[in-house]
């Protein structure tokens, strides 16, 4: 028999699933940020409003992206016929639905409070939903990792802890980057300082997780950490998407830069982080395909 013959089937997923995972991570991270904002603080209230609106918009665009990858998109609603706790895809979709609900209600409240919508509509969302959106956000960001790791694809399976952990930390970092970006646009510099700090922490955690994954994954990790794909991953995610933004953000925290320069720095750091986050998901998906084609790692699968 041909030794190159694959044992496993490669994922059929492409850019749409990558995007879905990426946006799902940000969406979840925004859920966390909106909880952290202290509404008594003006800048924080503004940030909460921004993140709530953004998270709802993401929750609204994500289902079409998910649907677009289905072989029979018209049957998307079939996912609603059951709840299957053992299926990350099933619970993930339900998580997304619930998150959308919470984010929607919270957004309505924000808009009602700011007078865009009639003020009675603020009663749509009890305070508990703030916490609920955060928890659901953490779940949706984390599930995008479990979705991958609870499969037979050796690379993903080998990262059964690392990939969910990296997904949620990357999601949080990307959410912070997006929040920073939006805050800069809004001129909310105070908020920006905090989101950048959190972003640095999340990125550092993400970096540590990925490095540890590389260390422990051995042969299973090779499709991700070796070869041409690894080059892009290293450049865009590890260096461009984590190390450089951390450096830039540190710079911003330490050096009092002139405002336009500082704003530019935030924009650059945020865009790089977002780009790195996208490429991280892309790396997961594409290396997963390569990993499924490696016969040896499929013969003895990660526990």
């Amino acid at each position: 028999m041909n030794d190159e013959k694959p044992l496993l089937k490669a994922p059929h997923w492409g850019a749409n699933v990558t995007t879905y995972l990426f946006l799902g991570g940000i969406m979840g991270g925004l859920g966390l940020i909106q909880l952290l904002c202290d509404p008594r603080d003006e800048s924080m209230r503004k940030l909460r409003r921004t993140t709530r609106i953004a998270s709802f918009l993401l929750a609204a665009v994500n289902p079409p992206i998910l649907i677009s990858h289905l072989g029979r998109p018209e049957r998307f609603l079939h996912m609603m016929r059951i709840v299957k706790l053992k299926s990350p895809m099933s619970v993930g979709v339900w998580g997304l639905v619930l998150y959308s609900g919470a984010a929607g209600a919270n957004m309505v409240r924000e808009l009602a409070q700011s007078g865009v919508l009639p003020s009675w509509m603020r009663h749509f969302a009890p305070h508990a939903l703030t916490f609920a959106q955060a928890v659901l956000g953490a779940f949706t960001a984390g599930y995008t990792g479990v979705l991958l790791s609870a499969t037979a694809v050796p690379l993903w399976a080998a990262g059964k802890r690392h990939i969910p952990a990296a997904s949620i930390s990357s999601g949080a970092a990307s959410a912070c980057a997006l929040a920073s970006l939006l805050s800069v646009i809004e001129g909310n510099h105070e908020a920006c300082v905090k989101t950048e700090r959190l972003e640095m922490v999340a990125s550092a955690v993400e970096f540590a997780i990925l490095m540890d994954f590389r260390r422990v994954s051995g042969d299973y990790g090779k499709p991700m950490f070796e070869g041409p794909r690894a080059e892009k991953f290293r450049t865009v995610t590890l260096i461009g998407g984590i190390a450089v933004p951390i450096a830039l953000n540190l710079l911003g925290q330490i050096l009092p830069l002139p405002k336009p320069v500082d704003a530019a720095r935030t924009v650059v750091a945020s865009v790089l982080t977002l780009l790195g986050g996208y490429v991280l998901r892309e790396t997961f998906i594409e290396s997963g395909k390569a990993s499924a084609a490696v016969r040896q790692t499929a013969i003895s699968q990660p526990t």
Binding site: G142, Y143, G145, T151, A157, A172, S300
Partner: peptide
């Protein structure tokens, strides 16, 4: 496969790792 593994067995670890990071970041 000589050593096939049921993918869902990896879920608890995955969710747990995600939860730890989530709580830590929170």
């Amino acid at each position: 496969p000589e050593r096939p593994v049921l993918p869902s067995t990896r879920q608890p670890d995955g969710y747990a790792a995600a939860a730890v990071i989530a709580v830590g970041l929170a």
